[in-house]
Design a protein around this nucleic acid. Structure first.
Length: 324
DNA sequence: AAACTCTTCAACCGCTCAGAA
DNA sequence: CTTCTGAGCGGTTGAAGAGTT
């Protein structure tokens, strides 16, 4: 099953290839409790037969709660095309302008769709009007934070169900031999779930087994019965662990452990303001930055770009895709 | 329905870089 | 300054699914 070249180092006994739902669950559970910290030692501590690199990649590209799944919108595609013209194959850099999208995902979209579109600009690609006139309509917005209803390409139903509704990456439980009992015991041994959540875990896994005829998106069902408050606390905790959240004047340690809903929302707001300020500072310091020039052209000035930042509602709803 | 070809994308690899010792 | 270690990046691969013959 080995993809790519021969392994560079000894990895005898480690799993390779596609991740199973059980492995996913174990990784998410571990990071939920402890954060990822040191990727190299994480697999051992989490009881995963994977290398640290593999765990990191899986988390970043697939399991993170803020991943936006589904087809790329036309705006996102145009943004990629224009940024690629400016930056080249700097996928991580491009990804930084597309909230919720990963460098790997963008790279794949470029190689499979966008590059071909540019090579054959005539083929119904009235869509990609912007590449020629360089007056990009797109802003790297997340107005599309819920990706479902992108007008085009709904034929690629990988993340859509028959009704065209967005579904999260689903896994069929009965396709795999998941030893739920073992997982629960393992989690209890590690104290992965807070006491108040353990019954929830049991409930959910029981539900999962009972509904074996239907596919389940464990990420969603996972916290199905949790209170909203618990889920938000978890998100805050996870964001802190991932260093996604740095409020200058807020003690995140105490905030995340004792936060109320109000504090949570306030801190999300502060986080947004903090990120906006960082971007403004960055843009102001990079007068010759081609990316800045890109955003300054046309209707998407940096100011408009900032206006396109996700609203508080969209931030929480995006998070909900994983949590609630 | 079967065989074949094409496309997609998750996951692998080696390399580079940054920070610590 | 050098060496070591871990994180991250970009290129590449191949299994699986979709499409075609």
């Amino acid at each position: 099953m080995g993809r790519g070249r021969a392994p560079c180092c000894e990895k005898v006994g480690l799993n390779k290839g596609s991740w199973t739902p059980a492995e996913d669950m174990r990784l998410v559970s571990y990071i939920q409790k402890f954060g990822h910290g040191n990727w190299r030692s994480l697999p051992k501590r989490a009881g995963l037969l994977r290398c640290g690199k593999s765990c990191r990649l899986r988390w970043i590209n697939y399991l993170r709660p803020d991943i936006k799944r589904g087809n790329f919108t036309k705006e996102e595609e145009d943004t990629i095309i224009n940024l690629h013209a400016l930056l080249g194959n700097k996928w991580s850099k491009i990804a930084s302008y597309l909230p919720g999208r990963t460098d790997n995902e963008i790279k794949n979209v470029w190689n499979t769709h966008l590059k071909k579109r540019l090579i054959k600009p005539t083929s119904s690609s009235s869509s990609s009007n912007s590449s020629s006139d360089h007056s990009p309509s797109p802003s790297p917005s997340s107005s599309s934070s819920l990706p479902s209803s992108s007008s085009t390409d709904q034929s690629e139903a990988k993340s859509s169900n028959n009704n065209g509704e967005e579904v999260h990456q689903e896994v069929k439980v009965d396709d795999y031999d998941i030893n739920i009992e073992e997982l629960i015991i393992f989690d209890e041994m590690l104290d992965i779930f807070p006491i108040e959540n353990k019954t929830t875990m049991t409930t959910i896994t029981t539900t999962t087994i009972a509904s074996s005829s239907s596919s389940c998106s464990f990420n969603c069902e996972y916290n199905q019965n949790e209170s909203e408050n618990e889920s938000k606390k978890w998100l805050a905790y996870l964001e802190k662990e991932l260093d996604l959240w740095e409020c200058e004047d807020t003690d995140t340690t105490t905030t995340t452990s004792t936060t109320t809903n109000n504090n949570y929302y306030n801190n999300i707001y502060n986080k947004q303001e903090y990120e906006k300020k960082e971007i403004v500072d960055y843009m102001e310091s990079e007068q010759d930055d081609p990316v800045l020039s890109y955003f300054q052209r046309g209707p998407s000035s940096p100011q408009n770009f900032l206006l396109d930042f996700p609203s508080l509602d969209s931030i929480t709803s995006t998070s909900n895709g994983f949590l609630l």
